[in-house]
């Protein structure tokens, strides 16, 4: 999978198992949840939150981006990764894992949905994501603090998981 080496250079460990047919091979994750496929046609790409990836056909291209800034507050670390998978010349399949169940929202152009930061699993590259942060100074949160969510704007798909588990990273 092209692009994985870049991630190793960035300091993240990557363990990659390759299989070549003919034959059968099975995969699962070590957590209760939901497995689902995303078929990528040539010229399309999908952005995937870190730790959601299970498997992909070898004809997909891979790269990643590191999200910093406000996300620091979300996870108590220095950021998190968003993986990008794309198909260039041939249809490919990406299999992802979400905790709990996974729902998909199809956004029309300029349609928006707000999702708790731990809730999204994937989005089409055509979907824009912005962080919304509100300071809380009154009410039951009288001690202050911030309420944060992500705002997604279509067109495109957004995957949402019903349960959130943030795996510890080495940072």
């Amino acid at each position: 999978m092209k692009g994985a080496f870049k991630r190793m250079v960035a300091g993240m460990p990557i363990f990659l198992t390759e299989a070549q047919g003919p034959g059968e091979i099975a995969f699962s994750r070590d957590g209760a949840g939901h497995l689902f496929p995303l078929h990528l046609t040539p010229g399309t790409a999908v952005l995937v939150r870190e730790h959601q990836f299970l498997a992909a056909t070898g004809n997909l291209d891979y790269t990643f981006n590191r999200v910093k800034g406000v996300s620091n507050m979300l996870f108590g670390s220095t950021g998190f990764f968003v993986d990008r998978f794309s198909a260039s010349h041939q249809e490919g399949v990406l299999w992802l894992h979400g905790y709990g169940n996974v729902f998909e929202k199809q956004l029309a152009p300029n349609e928006q949905i707000d999702i708790e930061p731990g809730g999204w699993v994937y989005r089409d590259e055509t979907v824009r994501m912005e962080v919304q942060m509100f300071g809380l100074k009154t009410g039951i949160f009288g001690g202050g603090g911030n309420m944060i969510w992500n705002r997604f704007t279509g067109p495109g798909r957004v995957g949402i998981q019903s349960m959130y588990l943030h795996l510890p990273t080495s940072e």
Partner: peptide
């Protein structure tokens, strides 16, 4: 490739490769 997803709590992805396609891959990202 052909594949099937089955199972309740911890689902499993079964894949069958015909040997013509490029490899399926798996990584802990």
């Amino acid at each position: 490739i052909r594949y099937r997803i089955d199972g309740e709590l911890v689902p499993v992805l079964h894949t069958w490769l015909d040997g013509r396609a490029r490899r399926p891959t798996r990584a802990a990202l």
